[in-house]
């Protein structure tokens, strides 16, 4: 069964160190001023990488049944639907917040 994967201590420490490193990078990158949309893209990109590392190796999704990974992805897909469709409204209004 896939449910009982045991990681070695060394491996877990490696994952932890990578995450610390990425945290440092995401802070350090703000010291060099990246132009407007790209700073957000980079910051979110690093956060996504970190989240994937945590979910794959700390939460064992990498070794687990596919269904759990599917659930995880499903929740993110529905979040994206939520924000995506809401933005269709909020970004394209003539008046950002309607006045009554």
């Amino acid at each position: 069964m896939s449910g009982h994967h045991i990681s070695s201590a060394k491996f877990l420490w490696g994952v932890g160190t990578t995450l610390f490193l990425l945290t440092f990078i995401t802070v350090a990158i703000t010291w060099i001023a990246i132009p407007a949309p790209w700073n957000v893209v980079v910051a979110i990109g690093i956060a996504v990488v970190k989240a994937i590392i945590v979910s794959a190796f700390f939460m064992n999704l990498y070794w687990d049944t596919k269904f759990h990974a599917m659930l995880f992805v499903l929740s993110i897909v529905f979040f994206l639907l939520f924000i995506g469709i809401t933005l269709l409204d909020t970004l394209y209004r003539t008046d950002p917040i309607p006045t009554f």
């Binding site: 529905f78 469709i85 269709l88 394209y92 209004r93 309607p98």
Partner: peptide
């Protein structure tokens, strides 16, 4: 069912693009 919620808001002041899509 998750894609259509805005049809409750056609007259609520949402953008016309969103109205069309919904």
């Amino acid at each position: 069912g998750f894609l259509v919620w805005g049809h409750h808001m056609f007259t609520a002041g949402q953008s016309s693009l969103a109205n069309m899509v919904f």
